[in-house]
């Protein structure tokens, strides 16, 4: 009974996998590649008027409508940057992110990663190695049945020698503080731990940039803190470029630059301070500012003397103390 159960599930997965392999081949189209040499010296990632459309088809395969998920986006990411991309549901964040490591190809415009045009088949593996990707659901991106084997998956695909793989696995696991769990089964780990294993799996490929697509969306507050701490650590100590896509404003506060997306376009960009000052504008695109900023905003509107763009609790506390003591002085 037990055996047949296992076997049946195995077969189901086989079928699913084969099905997926068969139907997931990319549609490449014949646009001439851009001469990438000009841009070689420039940014790590650069997009030039990038657009992407999902084509909706009815059940006979006829085109029913076109869904423009990404609409002429220009952005550039420099080495060592910490970028945050925010936007309401369906604003095209994930679609954009998948362009950064050639999981999707632009319908219009060009994406350059390390100077390479992502549509250039020849560089596909270089591009995927340059920008690693961490996804939202921790369960759906873990491939190995033991932590260390999962982390080794990327280097194995790249054909790294066994001894070097070991070195990379150990180093990556240590840098996300998961080394002691290397012999564990991933299914027994907490969500935050699983995501850190996923990050280690990307790190083991020694990328220059890591794109994280809502890595904390399915985690509890503890797990969220762990993961964000790991990400910041990688950025600060190892200089790895981070592109963090998130719903949580608090996570974007530490970024060097924030992009706000709405309906496939970038509608705002700037430092967190610049962005979160525009509370009303953000509400307009279905976003809210960090709790602290919102509190400060409401206090300011009601006449409390506070500066714009307060992002952290410490800042708010300091400013409040200042205003309070000033008010006291005025009284006496």
């Amino acid at each position: 009974m037990k055996e047949t159960g296992d076997r049946r599930q195995g077969t189901v997965l086989c079928l699913l996998f084969v099905y997926h392999k068969k139907y997931s081949f990319k549609e490449t189209e014949n646009r001439p590649l851009s001469p990438h040499l000009i841009l070689k010296s420039m940014s790590l990632i650069k997009t030039d008027k990038v657009s992407y459309e999902y084509i909706r088809r009815d059940k006979d395969g006829a085109v029913e409508g076109i869904n423009k998920a990404v609409d002429e986006i220009d952005l550039s990411v420099e080495k060592g940057d910490f970028i945050a991309i925010l936007g309401a549901n369906g604003s095209g964040k994930s679609t954009l992110a998948k362009h950064f490591n050639a999981l999707l190809y632009p319908v219009g415009g060009t994406v350059f990663v390390g100077g390479m045009d992502t549509r250039d088949e020849e560089h596909l593996w270089d591009i995927r190695q340059t920008t690693g990707m961490v996804f939202q659901n921790p369960d759906n991106q873990i491939i190995g049945t033991v932590v260390e084997e999962d982390v080794a998956f990327g280097p194995e695909n790249m054909g790294v020698k066994s001894r070097d793989i070991w070195e990379r696995v150990i180093r990556s696991l240590k840098s996300v503080d998961m080394f002691e769990y290397r012999k564990h089964s991933p299914s027994r780990l907490s969500g935050g731990q699983k995501q850190r294993v996923a990050i280690a799996g990307v790190l083991a490929m020694q990328p220059e940039c890591i794109v994280l697509d809502e890595p904390t969306a399915m985690l509890d507050p503890m797990g969220r803190k762990e993961v964000i701490a790991s990400i910041r650590e990688l950025n600060k100590t190892f200089g790895i470029t981070i592109i963090l896509i998130t719903h949580y404003m608090e996570e974007a506060v530490h970024a060097d630059k924030v992009y706000i997306m709405d309906k496939g376009r970038i509608v705002m960009q700037g430092t967190p301070k610049q962005i979160f000052t525009n509370v009303e504008e953000l509400r307009g695109v279905g976003l809210s500012v960090p709790k602290v900023t919102e509190l400060a905003f409401e206090l300011r509107r009601r006449g409390v003397d506070l500066p714009e763009g307060i992002l952290t609790e410490t800042e708010l506390a300091n400013e409040l103390c200042r205003t309070l003591s000033e008010a006291k002085h005025r009284k006496f």
């Binding site: 997965l13 699913l16 996998f17 099905y19 997926h20 392999k21 997931s24 998948k98 490591n101 999981l103 593996w125 995927r128 190695q129 690693g132 990707m133 996804f135 659901n137 369960d139 759906n140 991106q141 491939i143 998956f153 990327g154 280097p155 194995e156 695909n157 790249m158 054909g159 790294v160 020698k161 066994s162 793989i165 799996g201 990307v202 490929m205």
Partner: peptide, 21 residues
């Protein structure tokens, strides 16, 4: 899940058994 997993595998440079260590 199968779809997500295939994407995650591709993102980690999976391209079959060829040249795999």
């Amino acid at each position: 899940r199968a779809g997500d997993l295939a994407t995650a595998m591709e993102a980690r440079c999976y391209h079959g058994g060829e040249g795999r260590t």
